[in-house]
Design a protein around this nucleic acid. Structure first.
Lengths: 223, 223, 223, 223
DNA sequence: CATGAATGAGCTTTCATTCAT
DNA sequence: CATGAATGAAAGCTCATTCAT
């Protein structure tokens, strides 16, 4: 019933081949699950589709993740983890607050564009009214990091006399996320709606520029 | 085999009781479908759940909508129709461009807040990569209206020397929609993420103000 | 419940347009039923497929034929009727018994080839263990005619000192029917089985010749 | 998702009890399928009827045969296999070609009489225009054997100066099959048609004699 | 660590048929 | 004479999950 978590090895020096194989199976299933859930949603992404995509067996999913919900939770945590990992690698120009902010905006918009599974799985979770994420302890930790980066940049910009002081980091985070997320999440209906292909590089680049200008206009002091 | 569309009656003066009842059945099913699809998504929203919610029978769904996809398309077009209908009722203060813009922003944000089915069904459609909307002829017509309102307001503001002229109406439409949509669509994961209840009236009001200020800051000429 | 038969008009001189239209509907449905039952069998040939093929409505089938079984019975009797009608048009060379027999064989083999629905519907009825035909009064009448033609020819051949006298007409009828029917009825499995396309004109012509020779060899006195 | 064929065990010495039980399940289903398809045809023979007849569950049919078509193909191949198996057991009197031919005719006619499922399932397949058999690799192999027996007998009879040399084995095969098959396949409509019960042993025996005499008359040299 | 077998409930869809006008 | 609306049962098939090794 209860999913077995990939526990830390007691003998860290020499992991047995068996254990490594097991981890590989677990990872393969998880990767497949992310792909399938991303494409079909939670109810549309069947255990069968996933085990097949992972070239494994239904039974293994129950072995490693307990049940379908357990697998979905693991998928959800994994996509958050990946986003965080990517963000941690972001090297900002500490000298230049505006450049930093541009980098952050670019990072978020590009991450959303290049990781559609991040968006679709989050949407699935929101369709379920966040019933999994609310139980997860890891979610909050990740948010602190994400907003932290923005906060530091805003503080630096303020100190340099470039940015407005009354701006809340959380609002800027939401603003950038909104402008990046909605564009990707709804690109299919928007494409039909606007009669313009939002997946074209040119259209995306224009949007990126608009977002960057708008965010900076929001946080910068008037010249 | 073929879904019957609710066609205009040939004898408009005297609609028979049966015909009225039939329309009612169709409407009841459609309303139930919107609710169920909204709550469970396309694959999660079973025909059975819908017919039960409509106090009708599975068979009638096929009678009126052909198949599940046909019903989903009808639901999709209906939520667009409703949004458009609501927007058409919006009475703007033509004298005051800034007030107009505030009204538009408020309308959109409130509409998203009060019609979660609009958001979840659009998300479902985007999960399916827009496979239904791309076939719909009505989508484009609706968009023209939605952006048209913004365009007129921008033009008026420009003429009055209040707004910047280089702003594209489509960008402002996307901006407002993004800021309103993402907040609602992702409110569950965001609530867990931020540790702040985005459904609280106070938090919503603050966001509304932020969005309004930000959009106006974007379009207004510097004082 | 009970199918309404196409009753004889009370005013035979002047059939009303309405009545003619009704007959047309009935005939169209019957023709469509024969096609559909022929292609899909009784259980595979749905009321819906038939009414659609007839460009009519399900309800009309019940109006004219009572229920699905009634329609099948009508189809069955119609294909027998058509066969009989065609046979009645057969003009035999009364002077020459052997030529007559050749004509009969050719007629049967060609009729089976050109009317696959005759074969498939009979097969459907036999799958149902003849449950419809056993109730039909018309079947026996038809058989008398069919065998009668063969009997007359055999008798003439006998009188002319050409044919053996101990031959039973019923056996010859069964023989010709067997050799013609099996070839057509099982042509798909035989084609796979023999690796030879039984639908090719050349292969059919060879079979026709073989059948003719064999039947004549059976009934003719040794020279 | 994919039908599992009953593969040869990797450890042939010691088959587990579970594996044996599984094979039994598969076999029971297959046997039930043959009975049900035989009685109701392909579309009339429902999965439910079959699983019930096999005292198993719907689900197991999909587990072992993939889908209904897969089950039908298995049934089709099985009845061919059985016929072939029975024919292989046929011990012919090699010294006497005429006796051999009588044995072959008797075997075929009796097999058709005693295995009505062979006939009805073949008819079902022909209704479907041979869509399954054409994909089967085994069909051709069986035919070679069936005709081979006749060919050998004809060759021997020729060598003994008893049979005509210009006779093609394939025609004789078709002739015997036709005369045996049609009689059984259409016995219900023929019974109504002829007013004679073709299932009575006496009538069958007479037909068997007629067929034997006719075939021999066809292949034998005139005395 | 892995797997083949089994299960029962649920899925979307089609069936033949009847009702009310 | 014809038709749109309605119905309940059953169809083929997939679902998440557990059992026995």
């Amino acid at each position: 019933m209860i999913a077995k978590k990939q526990t830390a090895s007691k003998t860290p020096v020499k992991t047995s081949a068996r254990k490594r194989a097991a981890l590989a199976t677990r990872e393969t299933i998880l990767r497949a699950a992310i792909k399938v859930f991303s494409k079909y949603g939670l109810s549309g992404g069947s255990i069968d589709k996933i085990s097949h995509a992972a070239r494994s067996h239904d039974r293994m999913i129950y072995y490693y993740f307990g049940n379908k919900d357990g697998l979905f939770v693991a998928a959800l945590e994994e996509i958050y983890r990946r986003f965080n990992e990517a963000e941690a690698k972001l090297v900002l120009d500490v000298e230049n607050a505006e450049a930093s902010m541009r980098q952050i905006i670019q990072f978020i918009l590009h991450y959303y564009r290049d990781h559609p599974e991040f968006i679709t799985i989050l949407n699935s979770e929101n369709l379920l009214r966040g019933q999994h994420i609310s139980k997860s302890r890891t979610a909050r930790e990740y948010s602190t990091a994400a907003i932290g980066v923005i906060e530091q940049t805003l503080v630096r910009g303020c100190a340099q006399g470039l940015f407005r002081s009354e701006i809340r980091p959380r609002d800027i985070y939401l603003m950038i996320a909104s402008l990046g997320y909605f564009y990707q999440s709804n690109r299919f209906t928007l494409t039909a709606f606007l009669g313009e292909n939002l997946e074209s590089p040119k259209v995306f680049a224009e949007w990126e520029e608009f977002v960057t200008n708008t965010v900076l206009r929001t946080i910068k002091l008037a010249d």
